[in-house]
Simulated assay, not measured.
Amino acid sequence: MEKIHAFTNHLPVQVAFGEDKIQELEKIITTNGWERTFILIDRGLMEIIPQVAEATRNLHAVISEKEPGEPTISNVEEIAQQLKASGADVIVAIGGGSVMDSAKAARLVVSQNQSLREFIQSEQTVRNPEIALITVPTTAGTGSEVSGGAVITDEERNVKVGIADSLLRAQHAIVDPVLTYNLPRTITAYTGIDAVAQAIAAVMSNVRTPIGNAIALEAIRLASDALIKVVEDGTDYEARSNMACASLMAGLSMNIANCTAEHSIGQALGGMYHLPHGLTIGLVLAETMERERKHIPELMERIADALGLKKMEVRMVRVPSVPFVNL
């Protein structure tokens, strides 16, 4: 039996999970007394997801649409300028992990009163932001809605830079599975494997805790069945809901523990070859698990149990084609 080492745990994000929870956005803003709203959203999302347009209609917010793709330092600087000029006291990030990470980083730039590149190169501590953050994920995988981390591409050096601090976390997260119903198959697969990897890493990490393990193993159990179903059939709304919950729980478990080699290697590949985060994580996950297997065999058995590997055959699922990468 493994010894339980001392640990601390503080996850202050207030979570609202469930179908149509997006309609509580205005109430959350008014209840907290926030008066000037800045919305950062994936371009075109208002038209694709009518529930988002309805929930934001009466906010009288400044709206900034993020272009598709992984967030870069220059993207963040531009968003930070817009955020500062708006005078907002709350930022609402609606979209995938790239939007939520961009919002965290832009808020950091405004709070620190320095460029993101200057902050990364310095050893300054993160100040408590004066601008509140509400995250509304429209993908099921990154867990960024509850995490204190952000991954930003440094386009000058072709590397992905990770920023992490508890003060980067949102004050509120609205996780509404309905917002993921129209998610394309490719993004469903890439973000979904990211959630699985985060949960598995939380169990493998050398800073794992019993609380993190409990949340992570349930996330793995939910995703092991739901991810296959939503990749095969995006209209399986029960599976969509389970994946949204798995993503949320994986993000929580990652914050309690940490990621492992799969994220370090995946981020390096993504920065070098400009590939999606979830794809690169998926490409190296099996190898990193094999590396850890001999060190933590009992924990790997628990991961296997959560994946259902003792009661079902391994299934091969045709997923969207992966762009060729010459490594």
Rank of each mutant, 00 (worst) to 15 (best):
I49H: 01
V319R: 02
R117G: 14
S144M: 02
A197C: 07
K229G: 04
S98L: 06
P184T: 07
G95Y: 08
D165G: 06
P184V: 10
S241N: 02
P297D: 05
K27A: 12
G162S: 15
I48F: 03
P12M: 08
Y273K: 15
S64W: 02
S253Q: 09
G44Q: 11
S115W: 13
R208G: 01
M204Q: 06
A80M: 12
F17Q: 12
E155D: 14
D305L: 03
Q171M: 14
A214V: 02
L25A: 07
V175H: 08
P184H: 15
P137T: 04
G44W: 14
L217E: 00
E292R: 07
E298S: 03
V109R: 11
L248A: 11
Q198V: 01
L45K: 08
L269A: 05
S166C: 04
S224Y: 05
L116C: 10
G95R: 09
F7M: 03
V146N: 14
R302I: 00
M316K: 14
Y190A: 00
A202G: 03
V15K: 10
L307F: 00
E35H: 09
I48M: 13
A132S: 15
I22Y: 02
H60S: 15
G87D: 08
V231S: 00
S111I: 14
P323G: 02
E47T: 15
N128G: 03
K27R: 13
N255G: 14
N213V: 00
T8I: 10
I281A: 06
L227E: 07
M1T: 15
V110N: 09
E145Y: 15
C259P: 00
A55Q: 11
G270K: 10
I79N: 05
K84C: 08
Q23S: 10
V136Q: 07
R208A: 12
G141L: 15
L279Y: 04
S264Q: 15
G278Y: 09
A197H: 13
S224I: 05
E238S: 07
F324C: 01
M312K: 14
A80Y: 12
D165Q: 01
A93V: 07
L269S: 03
I94R: 08
I152A: 06
A93K: 04
I193D: 11
G270E: 02
E123L: 14
R127Y: 00
